[in-house]
Amino acid sequence: MASLKDLRNRIASVKATRKITKAMQMVAAAKLRRAQEAAVAARPYAERMAVVLANLASAMEGQAGAPKLLSGTGSDRVHLLVVATAERGLCGGFNSSIVKIAREAADRLIAQGKTVKIMTVGKKGADSLRRNYGKYVVDAVDFRGAKAVNFDHAAGVSAKILSMYEAGEFDICTLFFSEFKSVISQKPTALQLIPAQYDAAMVPDLGGAVYDAEPEEAEILGELLPRNIAIQVFRGLLENAASEQGARMSAMDNATRNAADMINRLSIKYNRQRQAQITKELIEIISGAEAL
């Protein structure tokens, strides 16, 4: 049985842990607000982009000469999985849930006899994928030094993806990230980047008029599609950042509560033991006095 001193030490150490988790929770809450604002601020651009893309893409549909980023390479043999995770742990199931859906997708594709290549963005995903899928990892990017993701990071990742695509190293590219639903709910999501997907229902009604394109549609599309990749990656990274902070906040909230419970239990144990010891000492004194 632990002595009184041991118990006192344990209580002190759990208290210190509680202070840390509490602080981490508050930091995550502050960061979450900023990350959430950034994610919301980036939405208009992505939405407008999707409309313009849908517009041009549906005009190009079925025509020869559509850019390869839209029509695909005509094969689906080699898949590139871009797995975006956080740089740091201690955020509950955030990283592992993204890695899990990426792993499931990889296993499914391998079972179908496809070739899988993995590109990791973020240190945590790289660490956990390296163990079993090391031979598939072709590239690993991380932003360890960066305070917050900005558009340049996303542009860098998309440039890598695009140059691989142009070199014919893969046919289909899918991005894995965690969509920010709310503070307590983040949804790991797979999003196909290449060939580009669009929603034809988003084309605004022009009342029979057609768009003037300057320069040609194919040329605009050729410029727009690479940008669209960067935007999608950027959106994924921002959603990820917000989700990470949300996940960390709830994880740390749980940890703080667990620590408080533990302190309670230990204090009760400590008090009981202290009383037992006092009683024992009293009995010793009394029986000693009686013996005289």
Binding site: V52, A209, D212, A213, E214, P215, I220
Partner: peptide, 19 residues
């Protein structure tokens, strides 16, 4: 600053996409 020249867009302009 259109890629093929400056242009001014006024209300009721015809639908257009440009770089």
């Amino acid at each position: 600053p259109g890629s093929e020249g400056e242009m001014t867009i006024l209300p009721q302009h015809a639908p257009l996409i440009t770089t």
